[in-house]
Nucleic acid binder design. Structure first.
Lengths: 213, 213
DNA sequence: ACTGCATGTTACCGCAAGTAACATGCACGT
DNA sequence: ACGTGCATGTTACTTGCGGTAACATGCAGT
């Protein structure tokens, strides 16, 4: 068994895989996280068992799909994070990049955040890892950037990880709420969040008439 | 049709409803968000259609269940938020209260955060409101407290709402990650998050050798 | 021509949400 | 005492989705 044939077949399989993923993408873009395997198979012009042969189960397909989008988003975020500007500007650029992304494709974003919650095979109650992979990856990534660039003294590495996940969670929740209610422009939201990270909460004065928050 | 009978019947119905909710509670505590209507009915000693008569559909039951726990948690949080201490201490107490709650009952917490994502009837793609009701309610509540007590100048109300949802998201994501990895004690996590809110991110110095984050 | 293997199909299983139609117990007006 | 209404309860079903088994087909290499 020489290698050329193996490679050939694998190439073809990879191509198919990519085609299937793109079909799945279209369906998810249209139907959100509710996209069914039947629908995806139909969109791809084939039937279910093929999907299962390629991806094992629904979780596998979703994981593969999530990986693509997550990678893409993380690339954008890294670019914003690495821009040649001062810290505040970069934080704002990063927030803006994220918000722009979720604003552009809400369905995909929704899918990434709540992937396959009700699927069987999810039986293990290991509570910790139920968060969306995207959130975790963004948190770890941000933590690394923080730890690399900021001098946080002893315990800085752990502090960076807490902050990474915390900031990502802040961004996510605020973005989610903002996308639903649209209470202000994207720019205003970005500024408000950056202000929060810049300590305006602690610096604000008490309102007259009661003890401060 | 006099009222006494009506009231009587309603009382009885309410009692049943509460019993059913408690049974559902037990099942969710055991099985997490995957709890099936059959299982809940069995635990309550009855059959499915009764559940549907009382709660309409699975979403209804879950909403009722979530309401109970959400109310309880919000009461605890309000207590921490209203304690007679300075702002920093109260923020830390609130964070600690939340983390203690999710640490004590991970299944319930998981259920509250990701309720019935895959249920039909969820077909409307109104993306915004997909976030857990608990997160939204906590965000709004916190926003109100912030807006009531802090002098934020013009635009303060909107700022308070952004911050409310942002802080809650930070708390949630960090807590979620922490619960899964247990990288440090609860106290350390609380301090780290409070530090973040207190502006240490902006105040930190650049690490030698590169531009600061 | 025969084998091996990936690709593709139809037809099925199991399980959970949700519903229709049928039974039963209990307060009421007459 | 007797039917009438109404809530409570049941069995048995439909629908839809995830997942799989068994069977068909096209195309290398010997």
């Amino acid at each position: 068994m020489d290698t050329t044939q193996r490679t050939d077949q694998q190439r073809s399989a990879d191509r198919r895989r990519r085609e299937l993923l793109e079909a799945a993408d279209r369906v998810v873009l249209r139907d959100g996280p509710q996209a069914s395997m039947n629908a995806i198979a139909a969109e791809a012009g084939i039937t279910k068992p093929i999907l299962y042969r390629h991806f094992g189960d629904k979780g596998g397909l979703y994981a593969a799909l999530a990986m693509r989008h997550t990678d893409a988003l993380l690339d954008s975020l890294r670019a914003a994070l690495d821009a040649p500007a001062d810290r505040r500007e970069r934080v704002e650029a990063t927030l803006d990049t994220y918000l722009t992304a979720i604003e552009a494709r809400p369905q995909v974003y929704r899918f990434l955040m709540h992937p396959a919650e009700g699927s069987p095979g999810d039986q293990g109650f290991d509570v910790g890892k139920h968060s969306a992979p995207l959130l975790r990856r963004m948190g770890e990534e941000l933590a690394q950037v923080i730890e690399e660039r900021l001098d946080l003294g002893p315990g800085g590495q752990q502090l960076a990880r807490v902050w990474g996940h915390g900031i990502v969670g802040m961004m996510h929740a605020a973005g989610d709420w903002w996308l639903g209610e649209r209470p202000c422009s994207r720019g205003e939201l970005v500024r408000s969040l950056a202000d929060l990270l810049w300590g305006r909460l602690a610096a604000a004065g008490d309102k007259i008439g009661g003890p401060g928050f």
